[in-house]
Amino acid sequence: MDGSVKVTGTPALELRSVRRVYGFGSAATTALDDVHLTVPSGRFVSLIGPSGCGKSTLLRLVAGLEQPDGGEVSVHGVTPAQACAAKLIGLVPQSPALLPWLSVLRNVTLPQKINRGAAGRRERIADFAERRTAPDMKELLVKAGLGDALDKLPAQLSGGMRQRAAIVRAFGLQPDVLVMDEPFSALDEFTRESLQDQLLDLWEELRTTVLFVTHSVSEAVRLSDTVVVMAPNPGRIVESIDVDLPRPRGERLFGERRFHEYEDLVRERLRRAWHSEAA
């Protein structure tokens, strides 16, 4: 591949008839079956669906933590492993997964010390010929409301603050794809909404592609350009719903009819997905 040619139109994410099976024989679980998904660069996509429908599995495949048993996964036209090697992917897991012995600031700056060869590898991938400078992590932390917590240890923070630090750590990588697995599920409603605000603020600024797993319909509708509804047994995608609401999506949105119409639509599709399993 010629690194100097800027190939436009390569999707940020592409899954083609992806299959993932755990276990063997009669004990086998088909976590994902014949999954097709294309995500253009810069879009915010949520995955929603009943427990066990393979949302986390899909994320792990995209993040290169597991290999599919069939089909293909590509990130900006390369394999997930190559994407990881170029630090194109940022992961926010369900727990903050901070290192308890490092201060908040050191936790979020550690990724810059890891895999220093990534910048060179990234430039060789077609879409990213331009060079990037590392972001000012202090500034990002302040923006996320953690200005007073720079030198605190994770144990000294609230759950919401820890999760914010984990998000800043992922954004600090300036990833081209951000994958998040129910990052707010352990938080109370109020904290959750303020973190959604902050996530959207950061995202408006950096405009990475986001793949976001959630169980909350309103969260999915509020955050996403596209909501992907999944169904279990076997895990599969049943519907993609484009959310055509203006951004920025502040609190006002919650009072709008269109917002609730989207919520109802997603809920209805989820119910159908649920029943298709029972059938």
Binding site: G64, A81, C84, K87, P93, Q94, A97, I114, N115, R169
Partner: peptide
Amino acid sequence: QVLQVYRTMDA
């Protein structure tokens, strides 16, 4: 999950 975070950076 900590390992997963650092594995996606290809540490």
